[in-house]
């Protein structure tokens, strides 16, 4: 039955010579719809179904083709991402058969290309690709991190540019999550790791130290770095404004703070010189905590991420970075927030 369901995809019934892909397009779409349900099935049955689908080289090839085709409907391409990601992440833990079927690594490289090329793909497809990559990174290990980080083109720079300049929040969130997973899983002490951590701290510095909403991007760049790198896209010169902490969503903010904490937490092999202006960093964090100290799940998540980040930095610098008086003020507001959120916090700990 599964092979019959997949037949329109396996046989690649799409007419690639026409813009609408011909009359069988609808049938291929429906076939993919059922395949996506099957590939998300639970338990042993789900594992067997995914094994059967991933063993079908022709089906995988058609799905990859749909993913890279600009003429295909967005819904079909999203579905192709979902099915291939589910197969890829599943076979990491179960059989590895996807690797042999034809395009395990190619699929991940394709996702990286889609996610980082904002002039070629729509932001919604890029958002899907980013979420898929984030999922793959989270569940994978050093091999996936290596694959992503060493994909042709300057992936690290592209990811940090998405985090800094992208308007689509799903993409920015995915970028923060991918960078965090790369920091956690990519443990080779080489130029990629050095570049990764340096680039992340630079972006964090731009967002967390300077985003007071009164400067355009150009001012912020010069305030933070003292220099403007020639190879960066010149979006800032066009008055692009770095998003302020107060307007950022709780999820994105939590991801950013977690990312910063992870950089310091996984830095045993690298000397991370302070690249943040301690005073404005602490003041911005304090203001952010004050605004988010009401007892809600989102606020609690942001404050915990901030707390974890501060602990990682205190350990890394042995307190050296936080000599300023501003630190006392930050701890005071965090302490006050922790008391306001105590009931919520305990109930969440118990329920988990």
């Amino acid at each position: 039955l599964v092979s019959k369901i997949m037949a329109p995809v396996t046989s690649d019934l799409l007419d690639h010579t026409t813009d609408d892909h011909g009359t069988w397009c609808e049938v291929v779409g429906r076939s993919m719809e059922v395949m996506s349900h099957l590939s998300g099935a639970q338990g042993e049955t789900g594992a067997k179904l995914r094994h059967e689908i991933s063993s079908c080289t022709e089906a995988i090839r058609t799905l990859s083709r749909i993913l890279g085709c600009n003429k295909c409907k967005e819904e079909m391409r999203q579905r192709a991402i979902w099915i291939l990601t589910r197969l890829y992440t599943d076979t990491i833990g179960i059989s590895g058969s996807f690797e042999y079927s034809c395009c395990g690594e190619d699929f991940v490289r394709m996702l990286v290309n889609i996610f980082t090329q904002d002039n070629e793909y729509s932001s919604s497809i890029r958002g899907y690709a980013g979420e898929a990559l984030s999922n793959i990174c989270f569940l994978g290990g050093i091999s996936d991190a290596t694959l992503i980080i060493q994909t042709s083109g300057d992936v690290i720079n592209s990811l940090t540019q998405v985090l800094l300049h992208e308007e689509n929040e799903t993409c920015r969130q995915a970028s923060a999550e991918i960078l965090e997973c790369l920091c956690t899983h990519y443990t080779k002490d080489d130029e990629y790791l050095h570049k990764l951590k340096k680039a992340i701290l630079k972006v964090i510095g731009k967002i967390l130290c300077c985003g007071d909403g009164t400067h355009n991007g150009e001012d912020i760049e010069s305030q933070c770095d003292g220099t403007q790198e020639n190879n960066e896209p010149n979006k800032d010169a066009q008055g692009f404004q770095v998003e302020t902490l107060s307007t950022m969503s709780s999820n994105l903010l939590s991801s950013l703070l977690c990312l910063c904490g992870t950089v310091y937490n996984t830095s045993s092999v690298i000397d991370l010189r302070p690249q943040l202006d301690a005073s404005s960093f602490l003041n911005n964090l304090r203001d952010m905590v004050v605004k988010r100290s009401g007892p809600t799940v989102e606020n609690l998540s942001v404050c915990k991420a901030a707390g974890n980040m501060v602990i990682s930095m205190l350990k890394y610098y042995s307190g050296g970075f936080f000599k300023e008086d501003n630190f006392g003020s930050l701890i005071e507001v965090l302490s006050s927030a922790s008391k306001k959120m105590l009931d919520l916090d305990y109930s969440m700990v118990c329920s988990s």
Binding site: L314, G319, S335
Partner: peptide, 17 residues
């Protein structure tokens, strides 16, 4: 971990430094 315990650890680390 609770936020309260994170704040406590941060205070201790800062005091030790």
């Amino acid at each position: 971990r609770t936020l309260l315990s994170l704040v406590r650890e941060a205070k201790e680390l800062h005091a030790m430094a």
